[in-house]
């Protein structure tokens, strides 16, 4: 187990190193920097380059970036001068993490319930309705759902606030629901099929032969067997949330890193783009590792090699 975790950590560090290296050199060949402004005098340009360390040889820039990244220092933003990238990210990360975690928890819990209900009502109206809902959930991108929510509950029937963050819980409701729809749909479909498979398995037949009632079989055998594997979905769903949250933060004016990432692209604020990229990749990898370890602890079938 420990050996496995160590192996995974090594792979993770290696992947992060690749990500940092790739982003650094990609940024070098990216067309255009904010310093392309023709109004800048050569002196001012040289001054700027010194400030950002761009006058050093490339390998020196790379090394110092690498060393900085290890210490959580991703340089200074081009856009907001004198603001360090880590500080910008540090301010905004908690907002994004809060939104993401809330959406993931709401989505998974809703999915577990709907999937189980769907499987137990296999092929009847309840199952059909939930089936349509979950198919819609995976077909409608979260940002479109966000836009529709804003239109319906912000403008048409103004029930919830549609912008901002941190003032009230009600602000979080619409963006959370928009983001939670897809994880909820994925979980519902997954749990449904796992549970149907479980209910037709030999061990459920054996449980029936023991004289257990349907309810006991579902509670003691089917639930556990079909819900544990949901953990393996958390990684991919978290990745989906990253994508969704950038646009959702934009739509609902939420000051998270997603919104900052989006605004840094047209202004070619490379230090911010690079820093966010690395933080995103690290977050996703930690998330996947944690769920893999959790799966191994909770699911006796999985043994880490």
């Amino acid at each position: 187990m420990w050996k496995y975790i160590l192996k995974r950590l090594v792979l993770m560090v290696f992947t992060l190193f690749l990500v940092i290296t790739a982003t650094f050199f990609l940024m070098q060949i990216m067309p255009g920097t904010p310093f392309n402004n023709p109004k800048l005098t050569p002196q001012a340009l040289a001054q700027l380059k010194t400030t950002y360390g761009l006058d050093l040889p490339l390998w020196q820039q790379y090394l110092s970036y690498l060393v900085g990244a290890v210490h959580g220092d991703f340089g200074t933003s081009f856009q907001y001068q004198n603001q360090s990238v880590s500080m910008l990210i540090g301010q905004r990360l908690p907002v994004s993490a809060h939104l993401g975690a809330q959406a993931l928890v709401v989505g998974i819990i809703a999915g577990l319930i709907m999937g189980a209900v769907s499987a137990r009502n296999k092929n009847n109206k309840i199952d059909g309705t939930l089936g349509i809902l979950s198919t819609l959930g995976i077909s409608v991108p979260s940002f479109i759902l966000g836009i529709v929510f804003v239109y319906l509950f912000g403008f048409k029937w103004p029930i919830f606030p549609v912008s901002g963050w941190g003032d009230s819980f009600s602000q979080t409701i619409l963006p959370t629901l928009a983001l939670a729809a897809s994880p909820a749909a994925i979980t519902t479909r997954f749990v449904r099929s796992e549970m149907i498979e479980s209910l037709s398995s030999d061990y459920v037949q054996l449980a029936k032969a023991k004289g257990l009632s349907d309810k006991e079989i579902v509670n003691k055998h089917a639930y556990r067997n079909s819900m544990i594997p949901v953990l393996t979905l958390v990684g991919p769903m978290a990745a989906g949330l990253l994508t969704g949250s950038t646009l959702i933060e934009q739509i609902f004016s939420i000051p998270g890193i997603g919104q900052q990432f989006v605004t840094s692209i047209p202004s070619k604020d490379f230090p911010v783009i690079m820093g966010t990229t690395i933080v995103y990749a690290a977050m996703l990898m930690v998330m996947i590792l944690i769920t893999d370890i959790l799966t191994a602890i909770i699911d006796p079938r999985v043994r880490l090699q």
Partner: peptide, 15 residues
């Protein structure tokens, strides 16, 4: 696959 798709798409889009 441990790198978020958004990042790969963004990087290539930028490039």
């Amino acid at each position: 696959s441990s790198i978020p798709n958004l990042i790969i798409v963004t990087m290539l889009g930028l490039l």
